[in-house]
Design a protein around this nucleic acid. Structure first.
Lengths: 197, 197, 197, 197
DNA sequence: AGTTAACCGAGACGGTACGTCAAGTCTTCGC
DNA sequence: GCGAAGACTTGACGTACCGTCTCGGTTAACT
């Protein structure tokens, strides 16, 4: 897609060159999807983007920061609203799995998790991100509470945590091809467990 | 514990020297728990074990293989049997969390997961291992089925998957200090969801 | 002499650091004269010069290239001009022998010859160098021709070859302590052989 | 030629197994002529000879000793006797050059010289060998003295040194293809220089 | 005749060096 | 005055040999 420009980019004076930033993020994504996490290095990204390493380091202090930006630049999976919690959660997981499978997002996110195991700041950023996602996912449960599908004292974020954990683990162990029936069964176990009366 | 012997180890003939193997695994564990995954290099392990790098590469073709051996050398968490599924699962998770927290196992396993994201063989080994653990954990559910606590058509491994995913994710995001109440609540959501009638 | 600077050298921007080059050549010379050819390794030079191996490899593709540079950095022996061929050649050999004996040049040149036996590029470089030296040495003979000391059809380079061969062989077999009388006798055999009438 | 036997050699009791010695020397020669000095390692020889490394080290304390044995096992170039010094020396050099060119002797001898630059014992052995060869070559000059071709006070070994140096240098700089005319010219310069009256 | 001793192949051992790759820092030059 | 770019030091990578060691087995020579 947004490959490196043919001609060498020059400085545009004393301010950030948005072409460079774009080229770097694009190159990072491309490198990641072509060579995987093991081939993902600042050097490789710089080569691919026809940029100097310091240019990358100036704007992204670590590999983790770059990964995070790449991940966040990609379209988000949104949470469905079908007026039924089971359908919402199954839909969400199906969308998430296929999004991870079919775009480079899966690779990017896996890499981010891996990176977080050796980089403190990546760990913090990932924790923040995950917290936010749990809150967002939890809203599906909150809506179900409001509809009376689910007991009022249910910890929505904890439910979101269960669901997200299931997704993460499948991503990390290359099981994104799980069929819908299995996903639905897993979701149902949880939804029944929190259902009202 | 089993640090490198004071005197230099020599060859014991044309066969593997178990002292060296032991020293290397011990050194790997020590390096990992002291310097973390980011400081874990074959060089560092060799230095620590007073072993030559080729000796390590002879027996462990990759960092992943070494990590796997280190993890498997450590004592396992076993699955309780309290005649009650909720207690079994809560006990299992509590044991697992404290084992991961209090020994170096947590670091080792996190590192293994991270490594699996860049190493194909590590990924396969990890997948195998996880499959085995799901089966083992699933037996708690099977026993509950036999006792009539749980519906007969429940997919025991899927339940184990949910539980293990919860554990993995907490490990990977440094949330092993989750209190018992939260763990119990999460377990209860699932156990209720599969309870008979 | 020009040892590595006390403080660590830093980059001086996107161009070759002459201090590093100097430190590396100096270190190479020092290592060679202290540990000999057998102790001469890129690693040792890098350690001594407080330089990174990649810095050495960036500028000298092989051990041979480094050796050649070290040799050429050293002061040259020049060819005397005494209006008498025998004196010229004896003087040249005496100077050369004492130069090889008293500086590290001898070691360096021996190493270069040794290296050329296992390195193609070193062999080529050495051949080039030797050809150049023969031409230069041959000028002493050409001058003698012009003076009428020597027959006009004498192959000056071949004479230079004989003289240089004598020197090389003495260097390679540690016979640089040959006394002047012997050198003079050897030279005289050749000079008489090409004398006019 | 005498390649390794098909079946594994066994010990023949508490004494040196000549089959092994033969196989090792043969393998050394083969490795040298196929891979050159740079590929010549004790490991490679052991592999090729299907021998254990200690068997080699037991009988040859260094690479140099092995090289020397290999060289001495090969047929020698002998000194012609044509009743004419120029013809003798030209014949000798022609034979030597073609022997070095057409058998592996050239490689072997070059390697030996190279090895002598980093190995003290090889240097000593080579010096001894060279001294012996000078004496032998000098006999051609002695015979010429006896015939009255050459002045009585000529230093025969020094003449031999000049001739041998010429040969060594051509070997070391890959100039063994020198044509006969050039060889003859060089020889003539020296022979004339020592001729009687 | 039984024991001993040295040889044999094999291959693991702790090391050193190889040549390469990437990390993160630094400085100069161009816009 | 900032951005771009490449050189810098550092350190790890995985491999090849080094020379030493111990093994299990074999055979000849010495009790």
């Amino acid at each position: 897609m947004s490959e490196a420009a043919d001609a060498a980019r020059k400085s545009i004076g004393a301010r950030r060159n948005p072409e460079s930033a774009e080229a770097i993020l694009g190159a990072a994504e491309a490198v990641l999807s072509e060579a995987g996490y093991s081939g993902f290095s600042i050097e490789a990204v710089a080569r691919r983007a026809r940029a100097g390493k310091p240019t990358i380091y100036r704007w992204w202090p670590s590999k983790a920061a770059l990964l995070l930006d790449v991940y966040q630049r990609q379209k988000r999976v949104d949470t469905p609203d079908t007026e039924n919690l089971e359908e919402d959660l199954v839909g969400f997981l199906k969308n998430l799995f296929s999004h991870w499978r079919e775009t480079s997002s899966g690779s990017v996110f896996k890499s981010l998790i891996a990176e977080a195991q050796s980089d403190e700041t990546a760990a913090a950023a990932l924790a923040d991100y995950a917290r936010g996602r749990r809150a967002q996912t939890g809203q599906m449960v909150e809506r179900a509470k409001a509809r009376g599908e689910v007991a009022a004292d249910v910890d929505a974020e904890l439910v979101a945590d269960l669901v997200a954990s299931f997704a993460w683990t499948h991503l990390l162990t290359n099981r994104l091809d799980e069929d819908e029936a299995t996903i639905r069964t897993a979701v149902r176990y949880v939804v029944r467990g929190i259902a009202l009366a």
